[in-house]
Design a protein around this nucleic acid. Structure first.
Length: 695
DNA sequence: CACAATTGAGTTTTT
DNA sequence: CTCAATTGTG
């Protein structure tokens, strides 16, 4: 039985258990993904279940594709096992097939966070309710809560403070339906609706799968749980793997206690615990265990105590610096010296609580020539310039898409503002192309010409977009003069144009791989931070959330200050503070060999002012168990508080500059690393950017 | 009525 | 500093 080779006793039990639903409580680094992968192999090899009759759900796309690869290799498969996937992709797949049954068209679009917020904002405006009280952000969260918990009673809870909420909720959902769009929550919720309202369809999907496995179960929410319950039905064919102490998505509807509910919903559940850790040293686990021991809550009885036979290990260090800049310097220098002692850059990860903290660290890495990659932050497909172009394609292929239409109808400016849009809106019946056509006669002559051009462009995209998205995107950029539009509007237009070109490349890949544009669009809207991790020899900078499921030989945890880690927003809420604790636990348990924690006594705010900080409250609980180094060198007057590394490279059009020989001038244009400057005294010269200083 | 220029507010985590 | 919202201007 080679499949079971190399598994420990508990892992073997988990792979071999089929007589009832199985809950595997698996601590960090205890080989839970291994269990799932091996169980899939066992099902296929020993129980002769075809791989496409197994549904395996992971938390990230990256985990899914890694699992796919392992299964393909082990079973020598010819085709990709498509049902190794994430909840959101699974739901999208089901809904593409069954859309008609819930009043949608099968080429529905997926609204991202921005689209949803804008839609809510539109609704709030339309209903003419007080925008001060009804903030889109807040409303979006409440609506999300309703959808994630399948619980409209949330509306009652806000009946007093937000009396118009039910109306907003209703209108927003109507907006989504007539736009043939779903938000992230709908993707899951609509599957539940579909299954509940159509027993025959549910039966079909139940029959499709013989076994279901779910990873990272602690971070599933109620809708996801409900989807599982429906697909499993009254069968035993389910294994879930999770760790309540690693639950870090309660703000997305997850709950460490959900894992306890599993036993109630799936009778005769067998529980197996995996507590042997294969990742970290004993010292790291000691500190991690101590951090999580402070946790409260009902799930505490299920707490896992990790152990290892990797005795000893190196001390965890806490390094205290005077300023945030020095903290970044410390991280950079320490990485450099460890690299000199044989480490690769890819052995390191810098973990942070908030993505903006990466700025400082990036600057230090640039200065010290440390290759790095930032995971997460502003995502490629959320960038304005990318969404602009994609919205043209989106709209042409799905003219009901309201947010795409609103985004592009006046981009570039066509003289269509709020009032004209309202006029077009009043003609809306089936979609926005129809609305435009019907409103046409009532528009000013000037606008008519532009609308005509717009409609012709859209028609062109409609005919070619799905077949040749890359060329079509180029065509759009040319026809609307998008590059010069960017040049006029943004200081960093060069980067933005480069991004647009990057999009062309991505679309070319789509053509090559034979996928349709709509498939690509779905992938891009469901893409995650981790998907972009390169296998290159670089230091990875990321938030703790983005580090879920990953491991590194050396981990830096930066910014351990009260208000940052734990987040200031968690101060008044015990539950949220508990989540911060689990987050800290997750951060520590990413490390195999070394952990460097750090914080700065003073941290610069965005305006450049140095604020005093307080050390993270979690540090108190472990201070006896870690080695503390404190650098108290006073801050010299000359030491820059805010970095200047970015502005050195930041020679932009219109920028006032100084040159050692030519004196002062203004930048007229930039070409690669050369800039053309009009100088006060010597006139126009073209010189290397490196020789210019900003004024 | 659309658009440019100016002021003002403000940093969780993300499918 | 960087974005969104608001105010003036053509």
């Amino acid at each position: 039985m080679e499949i079971l080779e190399g598994l420990n006793e508990e892992q073997k039990k988990a792979v071999l258990h089929f007589s009832s639903p199985l809950l595997v409580l698996a601590g960090a680094g205890s080989g839970k993904t291994r269990v799932i992968t091996h169980k899939i192999m066992y099902l296929v090899e020993k129980l002769s279940i075809p791989v496409d009759r197994i549904l395996a759900i992971t938390f990230t796309n990256k985990a899914a594709s890694e699992m796919k690869e392992r299964v393909i290799d082990a079973l020598d498969l010819k085709e990709e096992p498509v049902w190794i996937t994430t909840f959101h992709s699974l739901s999208a797949k089901i809904l593409r097939i069954e859309a008609e049954h819930i009043g949608y068209n099968r080429d529905f679009v997926i609204y991202d966070e921005e689209d949803s917020k804008k839609a809510i904002k539109d609704v709030i405006k339309e209903l003419n309710v007080d925008g001060e009280i009804y903030k889109p952000e807040k409303i979006k969260n409440v609506i999300s809560q309703i959808k994630q918990n399948l619980d409209e009673s949330v509306l009652d809870f806000y009946a007093f403070t937000l009396p118009h909420l039910p109306k907003i909720y209703e209108k927003y959902n109507e907006h989504l339906v007539f736009s043939n769009a779903m938000d992230f929550d709908d993707l899951l919720l609509n599957v539940v609706r579909l299954f509940r309202e159509n027993p025959d369809i549910l039966k079909k999907w139940q029959d499709k799968f013989d076994y279901i496995l779910v990873d990272e179960y602690q971070d599933t929410n109620l809708v996801q749980h409900e989807i599982l319950k429906l697909i499993v039905g009254n069968r035993d064919c389910i294994t879930v793997v999770g760790d309540p102490q690693q639950c870090i998505y309660t703000w997305r509807g997850a709950n460490p206690e959900n894992i306890l509910e599993f036993e109630n919903d799936f009778p005769d559940t067998k529980i197996i615990k995996l507590e042997r850790n294969y990742r970290s040293t004993e010292k790291i686990l000691y500190v991690a265990n101590k951090v999580i021991k402070g946790a409260k809550g009902r799930w505490k009885e299920k707490i896992l105590k990790l152990w290892t036979d990797k005795k000893g290990g190196e001390d965890i260090h806490l390094v205290i610096l005077e300023t945030d800049k020095r903290e970044s310097e410390f991280i950079g220098k320490r990485i450099k010296s460890l690299v000199e002692h044989g480490y690769n850059f890819s052995d390191f990860s810098v973990l942070i609580r908030m993505s903006y903290l990466s700025r400082n660290i990036e600057e230090a890495f640039i200065k010290h020539n440390i290759p790095y990659q930032v995971i997460g932050g502003v995502k490629f497909y959320e960038r304005a310039e990318i969404k602009d172009i994609l919205s043209y394609l989106r709209f042409a292929l799905q003219p009901k898409d309201t947010q795409a239409f609103k985004r592009i109808i006046n981009l570039p400016p066509r003289g269509i503002g709020e009032k004209t849009f309202q006029k077009i809106h009043s003609f809306f019946e089936t979609d926005w192309i129809q609305a435009l056509n019907d409103a046409y006669e009532n528009l000013p002559k000037k606008v008519q010409i532009r609308v005509q051009e717009f409609l012709e462009l859209v028609e062109y995209i409609r005919r070619h977009g799905n077949e040749k998205p890359s060329e079509t995107a180029k065509y759009i950029v040319d026809v609307i003069g998008y590059e010069s539009y960017l040049e006029d509007k943004y200081k960093d237009w060069e980067d933005r144009i480069a991004n647009v070109h990057e999009l062309f490349n991505a679309l070319k890949e789509v053509e090559k791989s034979g996928r349709t544009f709509l498939e690509f669009l779905e992938e891009s809207s469901l893409s995650q931070a981790q998907d972009n991790i390169q296998d290159s020899n670089t230091v990875k900078i990321m938030t703790v959330h983005a580090a879920k499921g990953l491991e590194f030989p050396v981990v830096f945890i930066a910014g351990l200050e009260d208000g940052i880690f734990p987040s200031g927003r968690a101060f008044e809420d015990i539950e949220q503070m508990e989540e911060e604790r689990r987050l800290f636990y997750v951060a520590i348990t990413r490390a195999k060999e070394k952990v460097f924690m750090s914080y700065a006594r003073k941290r610069a705010s965005f305006s450049g002012y140095l604020n005093e900080t307080k050390p993270s409250r979690f540090l108190k609980e472990i201070k006896e168990d870690i080695k503390i180094l404190s650098d108290k060198k006073p801050i010299s007057k000359k030491e820059p508080v805010k970095s200047d590394t970015f502005s050195v490279g930041g020679i932009k059009k219109g920028q006032l500059v100084k040159h050692k020989a030519f004196g002062k001038g203004v930048v007229i244009s930039i070409n690669g690393n050369k800039a053309t400057v009009l100088f006060e005294n010597v006139g126009q010269k073209t010189i290397m950017k490196d020789f210019l200083e900003t004024v």
